[in-house]
Design a protein around this nucleic acid. Structure first.
Length: 291
DNA sequence: GCGTGATGTTGAA
DNA sequence: TCAACCTCACGCC
């Protein structure tokens, strides 16, 4: 689940469930035990997301830093009376008045100082889910993208360029703007980038509201097109992500996939026409066709 | 029931 | 470029 929308949604849900309360903090699995002991019984002051990073603030400028990675989950559940025993490898457990939260499979769960938190945040590009004055300024991303010969597909996934975008939003954003994933960042116009950013803000806000990624426009929904809704663990309605070999909802061309920097890229060869620069010969690197 | 792959990142080779 | 992290839904038996 974890692109930026998941972490922002978790921050909201954690705030509702725990903020302002004394919480029991534990690490049934043990790997966070020493840190958990220091926080046990303290008030959870706030929960905040920056891109895919999640920070839980405790008194004394101490922050639990969580990064879910690919397979991590943070499950918040209400309980009534007895607290159920942990199931599986629970790295971190928070117990409040009415809810408990269990963290499993995360890449990172650390107890950080304010300085460590600030250093992490300082390395991140702007987050479309944050206010422009508070970490969500698209100009900062454009400064990196507009001058780069790297592919826009690579740039969008680079958390130092843009924070919170993952493989699904990348593929879908490029599709919605009919952009060839391998185009150099510098070949985009400022106007085009602004349109992409604005779109991303809307898509990701919808993602926070629905807690899933939906990117198809009204005219391409299953209801509008009379097609079956998507059924898999991703769940959202999308144009190209994990649809390789299937027909494009818009033009009918067969969706393609290729590995780029270790991640699967998906695009429609009909809607996202190959970009060819006017002058220089473009070097195509790093993309290996598959299937 | 078992094997696979996945919305991510780090650190070693 | 690849293994590791260590979860969970899915397809297939």
């Amino acid at each position: 689940m974890p692109e930026g929308h998941t972490l922002h949604r978790l921050a909201l849900d954690l705030t509702d469930a725990f903020a302002g309360q004394q919480v029991r903090v534990g690490s049934p699995q043990g790997r966070f035990d020493a840190e958990a002991r220091q926080l046990d019984g303290q008030v959870l002051e706030s929960a905040e997301a920056w891109g895919k990073q999640l920070f839980l603030e405790f008194p004394g400028e101490r922050f639990v830093h969580i990064h879910l990675g690919l397979i991590g989950k943070l499950a918040i559940t209400p309980y009534d009376g007895e607290v159920p025993p942990p199931v599986g490898q629970v790295r971190l457990r928070l117990v409040g008045r009415e809810h408990l939260a269990d963290l499993r499979g995360a890449t990172a769960c650390d107890l950080w100082t304010l300085e460590q938190r600030d250093a992490c945040v300082a390395k991140l590009g702007p987050d479309p889910l944050r206010d422009p004055e508070d970490g969500g300024d698209p100009d900062r991303a454009w400064k990196r993208i507009g001058g780069s010969q790297r592919s826009i597909a690579s740039l969008l996934m680079d958390q130092a360029v843009l924070a919170g975008v993952g493989n699904v939003y990348r593929a879908e954003l490029l599709f919605r703007h009919r952009v060839d994933p391998l185009r150099p960042g510098a070949s985009l116009s400022r106007r085009q980038w602004d349109a992409m950013w604005d779109d991303l803000v809307g898509l990701m806000r919808t993602g926070v509201e629905r807690n899933r990624i939906d990117t198809v426009r009204d005219e391409h929904t299953p209801e509008a097109m009379g097609r079956d809704p998507r059924v898999d663990d991703h769940g959202g309605e999308v144009y190209v992500y994990r649809r390789a070999g299937q027909p494009c909802h818009v033009c009918g061309a067969v969706i393609r996939t290729a590995a780029l920097e270790g991640r699967n890229l998906f695009w429609c060869p009909g809607c996202q026409r190959r970009y060819r620069p006017r002058t220089a010969v473009r070097a195509v690197r790093g993309a290996t066709p598959r299937r």
